[in-house]
């Protein structure tokens, strides 16, 4: 058994909207190990966004324990959470969320700026990662000069830059066409095969089919947790959007 990256024990999250209390997560237990490629699935309102926020250390559970590696994140102060987000988590968003009017290279460097790394080290590492995602020649492009797929690859490079314990992707192909979605999923598969832990939150079965494990949520509860044989990216992604040749 490999080391646990994420360990949720009896996690609940309640939103107090004044008149009514909404239980977004109900007694969730979940362990994700190093090197796994996990899809978290559910309809909207199932609690997967709430889980995503908690896993991403943007929010704290109302009750229960959340260990990220060795650290108990559920008791951390906002300042410590910021450090955890910076060093241990790589975020990838549906809408890319690159900083506008800032070059791809500067975007990739940003988490290292907040980690107080030296300028030369930042530059070296950012260039290395842009090359890794196949954008070595796009470092000085602004986000609005890049295609959707390219933006998302810059975002992935940015997520990897501080060598996080896991990549946390929220509907990473939601705004992409079929070909770009294929590229991105291939990239995730390749990264995972190098040992990077990847957690993808999605509502698309086709995306989930590339993961080795699928966790399903409904009404704030974990309803199924299955291991599966991942589909090979090249073969399967034709069906993600539009086509049904298979």
């Amino acid at each position: 058994m490999s080391k646990a990256v994420i360990r949720l024990t009896d996690v609940c999250k309640t939103y107090d909207t004044g008149a009514i209390q909404v239980q977004a997560l109900k007694h969730v237990d979940l362990v994700i190990n190093e090197g796994e490629f996990v899809a978290i699935m559910g309809q909207s309102g199932s609690g997967k966004s709430t889980l995503m926020n908690i896993l991403g250390c943007l929010d704290r559970p109302t009750s229960g324990k959340f260990y990220l590696g060795e650290d108990d994140v559920s008791v951390m102060e906002p300042k410590e959470l910021a450090t955890v987000r910076n060093k241990k988590i790589g975020f990838i968003f549906q809408s890319f969320n690159l900083i506008p009017r800032t070059t791809a290279l500067k975007n990739v460097e940003l988490p290292m700026v907040y980690a107080r790394q030296s300028k030369t080290e930042r530059r070296r590492r950012a260039e290395e990662l842009l090359a890794r995602v196949g954008l070595a020649d796009r470092g000085d492009h602004l986000p609005n000069e890049l295609s959707g797929g390219q933006k998302q690859r810059v975002a992935i490079a940015r997520a990897l830059v501080n060598q996080p314990q896991m990549l946390l992707a929220d509907e990473p192909t939601g705004n992409l066409d079929t070909a770009s979605s294929l590229e991105i999923m291939e990239l995730f598969c390749a990264l995972n095969s190098e040992g990077v832990t990847v957690v993808v939150v999605t509502h698309e079965e086709e995306i989930a089919s590339y993961c080795g494990r699928v966790v399903r949520f409904k009404d704030g509860q974990l309803i199924s947790d299955l291991l599966q044989e991942p589909a090979r990216p090249a073969a399967g992604l034709a069906g993600v959007k539009g086509g049904s040749d298979l």
């Binding site: 943007l58 300042k79 910021a82 987000r85 910076n86 975020f91 969320n97």
Partner: peptide, 16 residues
Amino acid sequence: TREIGIRKALGAQPWD
């Protein structure tokens, strides 16, 4: 606001 959100998600401290 959104840019601030992104920066915070990437680990910017409130002071930053």
